[in-house]
Design a protein around this nucleic acid. Structure first.
Lengths: 357, 357
DNA sequence: TTGAAAGCGATACCAT
DNA sequence: ATGGTATCGCTTTCAA
C-alpha cells in the first residue's frame, strides 16, 4: 500500500540529480556520469527497489508498449486462447504487454472495445476470432497499426494484414492421409455451413480425391455442425446403411468424438472397422480420446505469433518514420496482405488401414 | 495514424481555457462556467471526436482504473476463462479495464507478472487458477488491494480474501440426485489425487450416502485423473465385473465422456442401463454429448464476479481513506476471508431411474 | 466566470 | 560531468 520509490527518491539518496539517474538506469551513463556516481545510483535504486513508473513513461514517450487485443470469444475457447497465447509470447519477448477485451460474440461491442483501447493509447491493435471469418473492421483499427488473426477484412478493398490457416491444404492432407491407408470410400463431415472454413476444407478434400481419381459421392460430403451430437447423428446416418464408408473425416475433434460414440454404439471398432479423423487437435480432447484421435492440428500459437511479429514490425516502422508519409506506407510495401500458416497432421490411433472386404 | 485531439485543442476551438473544458466535460460545469461556453465546449469536443487520454488521466489521478489479473492457465481453458469473463463484466460495468497475464503453469513467472502489472500501476490485482488450489501468494499482491479466485492463500496466516466453489455441497448434491433416482450402488470417479477439490467432493459424496444410510464400498470410490481416457479405463474396470454399479458420478465432464464411451462399447445404454453424471458443465461438451450430460455446474462466472466486486470495494475503501491507517483495515473489518459459491445441478439426459433388477 | 499555474513521474536537451 | 527545465495531457486550486 505504501507508495513506490520514484526516480527523485533515488536521486536524493544517491546525492545526484534526476537526470543522472535516468541516464545511468537507461545504460547511457558512461561518458556522461562519473563512475562513482553511477555506482551510488545503482545501489540506491536497488535499495529502494526502484522500477520506473510505466504510466509516466508512456505519457512521456508517447508509446505505452501495450498491444490491445479484441476477441470475439476468448474466454471460453481453447482456440482464441491459443492464438492469444502465441501472440502474447512474442509481445512479452519484446517488452510489450497485451490487454485483451472480449466482446463475447456481440459485434456491436467491437467499436467501443477498440475505442477504450485507443483511449488507453495502445501502440497497436489485433483482432482475433474463434473461427475463420470475414470481419467488419472497426473504424478505430485504422488509426493505429493493426492486424487480423483468424479473420480477414470484409471490405471491397482490404486494408489490414491478416494471418489465417491454410484450410484448403488442411482438408487435402487429411484426405491424403486416409487415401494412403488404402481408403477409397471416405466421408467428409463438415462443420456448420456458415463458416468460410468449410468450403475451403471441402475443396481440399475434393482436390485430394481428384488426384487419386476417385469420384466424390454427393451423399458422402455434408455440413453437420460443430458439436458432439452433430457428429453422432451424422455418423449414424452414414453408418446405418449397409454400404458404409470405411473412413470419416471430420471438420473438428468434437464431431469425431460423436462419430466414435456412434461407432461404439453400432458395435464398430475404431480404427479396425472404421477410421475417424478429427481436425483442430483440441487440447484435452484429441490426445486423450479413446482411441486417441488422428487429427489436423490448427497452427494456433504460430498464427498468433506471426500476427504479433507482423504488428510489432509495423509499430517499429511507424516509430522510425516520425509521423511522416501517412503511416501506412510501410504496410503497402509488404508483399501482400495475407499470411497463410500450414496445418499439421497428427497421426494417432483413430485411423488405420482399410479393412479387408 | 494522425494524432488525437487533446483538451487543449477543444479549448482553442471553443475559445476557452483548458480548465473550463475539464470542468464541463466532467459534469462540474454548472455554477462554474457560463452556459454559453458550456455549449461551445461540448460541441467542439464532439466535432473533434475528443476523448481524454487515459494515460495522462492515470498519471494525474494516481489511479489507472486497470485491474491486473494473473492466471495460471487461461488461454487454453474454458474454466479460467469463465471466471475472468465474470470478473471482467463487473470491472467493465465500473469503468475498469482488466489486463491479464498468463503464466502458463509456470509458477516462477508469478512474481514477475505481478511486478509488471505493478509497474503499470494497476489499481488492484486478482489471481485466478484453473482448478481449486493453494497458492503461494506473490509478494507484490500484498502491496495493492488483491483477491484470489478459485485458489486460497497457502500461508499459516492467510492475508487475502478468496472466492471458491462449495465443493463439498457440490459432491453431496450430485450424489443426492442419483439417490433420488433410486440408485444405491453408486461409484464415484474422482479426478487426480493432487487436487484439493477431490477430497472435498468425495466428502460430499460420503455425506449424502451416510444420510441415506448406505455404506460406501472402498472399491467404488477412486481417483482416476481428469481426461477422457481416464474415465474410459475407470469405467471399464467398474463395469466389467458382473456386479456393476447402476450409476457413476464423475469429477468432471470429460471423465463422463470416457464413461459413456466405455458403456457404449460394452453395449450398455445410458441412462437405461447406467446413469452417468459429469461435473463442471463444460462448454461445448456437457450439453451436446449423446446423451446430454447431467452435471454439476461450477459457478465460474459468479465466482469471478464476486471476486471482482470484492476487489473493487477494497479499492474504493482505500481511495476514501487517503493513505491512512495502514490500508488493510477495510479488509480486516470484513466478516471473513472466504466466500463460497454454490454449484448448480443441471439435469439432462444421462441420468435416469435405477434399472429394474 | 475565467484563466494561470502547479504537479503527477520520467526523459532529453541545454546550459553550466 | 552535472543539474535545471520543458514537455507529455490532464485536473485542481487559487487569483483575478
Amino acid at each position: 500500500m505504501q507508495r513506490k520509490a520514484t526516480a527523485l527518491d533515488v536521486a536524493k539518496r544517491a546525492g545526484v540529480s534526476r537526470s543522472a539517474v535516468s541516464l545511468v538506469l537507461n545504460g547511457r551513463g558512461d561518458g556522461n556520469v562519473a563512475k562513482e556516481s553511477q555506482d551510488r545510483i545503482r545501489q540506491a535504486a536497488a535499495e529502494l527497489n526502484y522500477s520506473p513508473n510505466a504510466i509516466a513513461l508512456s505519457l512521456r514517450n508517447q508509446r505505452t508498449r501495450v498491444i490491445g487485443i479484441v476477441s470475439d470469444e476468448v474466454v471460453v475457447s481453447p482456440f482464441d486462447g491459443n492464438i492469444i497465447g502465441g501472440a502474447d509470447d512474442v509481445a512479452r519477448a519484446h517488452g510489450f504487454v497485451t490487454v485483451v477485451m472480449d466482446t463475447e460474440r456481440d459485434a456491436s461491442r467491437d467499436e467501443s472495445a477498440v475505442e477504450t483501447l485507443l483511449d488507453r493509447q495502445v501502440d497497436g491493435l489485433m483482432y482475433v476470432t474463434v473461427g475463420l471469418k470475414p470481419l467488419d473492421v472497426p473504424q478505430g483499427m485504422l488509426r493505429v497499426p493493426s492486424v487480423l488473426a483468424n479473420c480477414f477484412d470484409n471490405s471491397p478493398t482490404p486494408r489490414l494484414h491478416h494471418v489465417i490457416p491454410d484450410e484448403v491444404s488442411g482438408g487435402r492432407e487429411a484426405t491424403e492421409h486416409l487415401l494412403q491407408l488404402g481408403h477409397r470410400d471416405i466421408a467428409f463431415l463438415a462443420g456448420a455451413a456458415t463458416s468460410p472454413a468449410v468450403p475451403l476444407r471441402i475443396e481440399g478434400h475434393r482436390e485430394a480425391m481428384a488426384k487419386a481419381a476417385i469420384p466424390v459421392r454427393d451423399d458422402r460430403v455434408f455440413t453437420a455442425g460443430w458439436d458432439i451430437n452433430d457428429g453422432f447423428h451424422g455418423a449414424m446416418r452414414l453408418l446405418s446403411s449397409t454400404e458404409r464408408p470405411t473412413a470419416i473425416a471430420c471438420a473438428n475433434d468434437r464431431l469425431a468424438v460423436g462419430v466414435a460414440l456412434a461407432a461404439a454404439r453400432l458395435g464398430l471398432s475404431v480404427p479396425h472397422d472404421l477410421s475417424v479423423m478429427g481436425y483442430d487437435d483440441e487440447f484435452r480432447i484429441a490426445a486423450t480420446m479413446v482411441p486417441a484421435l488422428t487429427t489436423m492440428a490448427l497452427p494456433l500459437r504460430e498464427m498468433g505469433a506471426a500476427a504479433m511479429s507482423m504488428l510489432l514490425e509495423q509499430i517499429e516502422d511507424a516509430a522510425q518514420r516520425p509521423a511522416a508519409a501517412g503511416g501506412r506506407a510501410g504496410l503497402a510495401a509488404n508483399a501482400g496482405l495475407e499470411t497463410m500458416v500450414s496445418c499439421r497432421l497428427v497421426v494417432r490411433e483413430s485411423t488405420g488401414p482399410v479393412p479387408a472386404r
